[in-house]
Design a protein around this nucleic acid. Structure first.
Length: 315
RNA sequence: GGUGGGGUGGCCGAGUGGCUAAUGGCAGCAGACUGUAAAUCUGCCGGGUUAACGCCCUACGAAGGUUCGAAUCCUUCCCCCACCA
């Protein structure tokens, strides 16, 4: 807390379809900023329409980092991303611009601005073997394992359970202990602008989904399904599997659109829960992106940034 | 007009006399979350009241009836679907 030695980085976050990109572009008109995308899906090349990537024109107008940097079959991770984002931020600052981190992937933001832990070395081959073995087991079974290996983590989801087992078996340590003992220091101080459209968000999501369908999402998916293995991580973007089912004729367009809207709304809800609780105690300014005062509030937030020393006059 | 099937909680859909405010799924609400995170999980979910146990009310198309007891059985009516006319 209160460590003023770390430089401040401005970040715009919030649920999907709330207007983060709009806010960033608006700021770019009055300040020399470059955007660092904190979005785990815009990382992937070729997944454009359904991830609402900034358009080529927008990317030309404002420098963007963190977009189209991975092959669909590659797997990202919060730690991997934070490492890169750190580099992008430094690069932006070195060029004399102000970095603006923009995105809704809460875990990535935490990895960059909060604490992570230094992962102990693990044998790659053993790891793969273990993952294959555990991959078959039902959650309840995994939960029983973790209840013994690392009880503090036994209430979590499948992904976390697998991680806990893997660390415990391969390093002989509990992740929950490692989190405490090997925690890494934060790299930057974040100053958050949380944008949310409030009650209007549901409508925005529905409109955005329709726009994506009209913009050729189905064609994109048809093409991708020819080139990208169906179990590639990139497909884990809400809506993509549904649109793929539609392209494969398993779902009518109407039903697919309906599903996509529902899935997106559910995702936005999870994001809200995350930001509401995980950002508690941080420097957060909330604004209503659907309200009439949006631009004024955005500008006021940015003006407040001056007091913090505008963007990484690095320490 | 005839014959057969069916009408269940916001939706889908089990349930054929008590263990049923009613399995399950969906949607919704709340929550968790440190190397897969647009992922992965957990809880709640007719109304009222209660910290909770509980209690009260309403509910299985409608109205009657049988029964100690009915979403489940009987009668009539309404509506839907299929087939035959």
């Amino acid at each position: 807390m209160g460590d003023n030695s770390r430089p401040v980085v401005h970040v715009i976050c919030g649920p999907t379809a709330a207007g983060k990109t709009r806010a960033a572009l608006e700021l770019a008109r009055v300040a020399d900023v470059a955007v660092v995308s904190a979005d785990s899906r815009q990382l992937y090349r070729g997944f454009d329409v359904g991830t609402a990537k900034p358009s080529p024109a927008e990317q030309r107008a404002v420098a963007h980092y963190g977009i189209d940097v991975l092959d669909p079959a590659e797997r990202a991770s919060a730690a991997w991303w934070a490492e890169r984002a750190d580099g992008w931020i430094r690069a932006v600052i070195a060029r004399g611009q102000t970095p603006l981190v923009v995105g809704g992937t809460g875990l990535y933001l935490r990895a960059l601005f909060g604490h992570l832990f230094e992962e102990p070395a693990m044998d790659a081959a053993q790891r793969v073997a273990l993952q294959e073995e555990l991959g078959e087991l039902p959650v309840e079974e995994l939960r029983r394992w973790v209840a013994r290996l690392d009880p503090d983590r036994a209430h979590l989801g499948r992904t976390q359970l697998l991680r806990a087992i893997e660390i415990a078996l391969l390093t002989g340590r509990r992740v929950s202990d490692l989190h405490r003992e090997r925690r890494t220091p934060p790299r930057w101080r974040a100053r958050y602008l949380l944008v949310d459209a409030g009650p209007a968000l549901g409508r925005h999501i529905a409109e955005r989904a329709r726009t994506m369908f009209d913009a050729g999402w189905a064609d994109e998916v048809r093409e991708l399904s020819r080139q990208v293995s169906s179990d590639a991580p990139a497909w884990n973007a809400s809506g993509y599997r549904t649109v793929r089912a539609m392209v494969d004729g398993e779902l009518t367009p109407d039903l697919a659109l309906e599903r996509v809207v529902i899935e997106t709304r559910q995702y936005a809800k999870r994001q809200r829960t995350w930001f509401r609780h995980q950002l508690a105690g941080e420097d957060v300014t909330s604004i209503d992106s659907a309200g009439p005062a949006f631009s004024a509030q955005l500008a006021a937030w940015w003006r407040g940034a001056a007091r913090h020393g505008r963007g990484g006059s690095a320490a």
